[in-house]
């Protein structure tokens, strides 16, 4: 067991689906070296197929007996989506080098059939009561990682000092058992290097006192990063003290260390178009993701919001507001 655990909380009530985190991660790590197809960080519209496609039904995790389950390895074209190779030169001829006749229109060389945000904003339900929200996902740096359990070589480990789960890039032999076993499908096979890679929680940045790129660059200010046991850190306060941040699919059995503040949603409209007062995201939809405590968490959020509105103090609301960006991250703290 690692001695400490660095963890993240994402407030889904503040996520605007802008994918700045995705861009930040891409330029930090995955725009090169065979990682181009990967999104260590993605933001998916929920309900939806997610990324990779139907990951929630892809298997993996642990069974009731604690045995790791082999899940499916997603298919590159069907489930991840192939990175677009654009015909910039042929269609635009920007250096004046082209010879020949008609310009084709600018498009990916292979007609796209899927991508990491393919069903953006589609959601479910019927107008005017459709519903959706954004679910950003990174590796959960689980306390009991299925990828680690599934690696026959023991090439995946949890760092003792911060609980970050890493795939040893020297020992990995690219067997991809981890890819199938991760129930969140957050390990990716690198076809160029022939080994698996995943979100590294930006550990080289952490070591320099910098928050992970996805968190520091999050324009919606939804991500908090600190050690779970750091009582002064926002993560501890939201997860342990206020208990409003919940793990995603805890039933997978991996004990994930990324937590989510579940989203409130606008009122439903009745047949005449009047607000019914009922939240339009069905509780069941959220419970399926975040477990049975969702209704009480939403109630607590509303109650604290009311307090704040009345001018009373609310540590919880102040935390979620995050008055100072830099205070969302406590990563250099010794216990």
């Amino acid at each position: 067991m690692s001695k400490r655990q660095l963890a993240m909380v994402m407030d889904l009530n503040k996520c605007i689906g802008c994918q700045t985190c995705t861009s930040a991660c891409k330029t930090q790590w995955t725009n090169r070296n065979g990682r181009d197809y990967m999104y260590w960080n993605n933001v998916e519209t929920h309900p939806g197929s997610g990324y990779p496609r139907n990951w929630r039904k892809s298997g993996g995790g642990f069974d009731a007996a604690g045995k790791v389950k082999q899940g499916h390895i997603p298919n590159l074209a069907r489930d991840y989506g192939v990175p677009f190779e654009m015909n910039y030169t042929a269609a635009l001829n920007p250096r004046g080098e082209r010879e020949g006749d008609a310009l084709p229109h600018l498009a990916p060389l292979t007609p796209p059939t899927f991508g990491p945000n393919w069903d953006e904003d589609q959601g479910a339900g019927e107008y005017p009561n459709s519903f959706h929200f954004y679910l950003p996902r990174i590796c959960n740096h689980c306390t009991n990682p299925a990828c680690l359990a599934a690696c026959p070589r023991g090439a995946i480990y949890k760092r003792e000092e911060d609980g970050i789960v890493l795939v040893d890039q020297e020992r990995c032999r690219g067997y991809q058992h981890c890819v199938g076993a991760c129930p969140y499908k957050k390990v990716y096979f690198n076809p160029r290097f022939g080994r698996s890679e995943k979100c590294i929680f930006c550990f080289p940045r952490i070591e320099q006192g910098l928050a992970p790129a996805c968190a520091r660059q999050c324009a919606g200010r939804i991500r908090f990063v600190s050690y779970l046991d750091d009582a002064d850190g926002p993560v501890h306060k939201l997860v342990t003290k206020w208990q409003v941040a919940l793990p995603l699919h805890a039933e997978f059995g991996t004990q994930p260390n990324v937590y989510y503040v579940p989203p409130l949603s606008p009122s439903k409209l009745d047949a005449q178009g009047r607000p019914s007062g009922e939240r339009r995201i069905p509780d069941a939809e959220l419970i399926e993701l975040f477990g049975p405590r969702v209704p009480e968490v939403l109630k607590l959020l509303e109650a604290e919001r009311e307090k704040k509105k009345r001018g009373e103090a609310s540590e919880l609301m102040d935390l979620l507001i995050a008055y100072r960006h830099e205070e969302m991250f406590r990563i250099g703290v010794k216990k």
């Binding site: 861009s23 725009n31 600018l106 324009a219 008055y323 100072r324």
Partner: peptide
């Protein structure tokens, strides 16, 4: 009042890639 940081968006965060893309004019 919350500070304005970090600002920025998906597009600005990718411009290092766009500026060197093959649609770039050179001459």
């Amino acid at each position: 009042i919350p500070d304005p940081n970090p600002r920025g968006c998906n597009k600005g965060t990718i411009h290092s890639q766009a500026m060197a893309e093959k649609d770039r004019l050179h001459y």
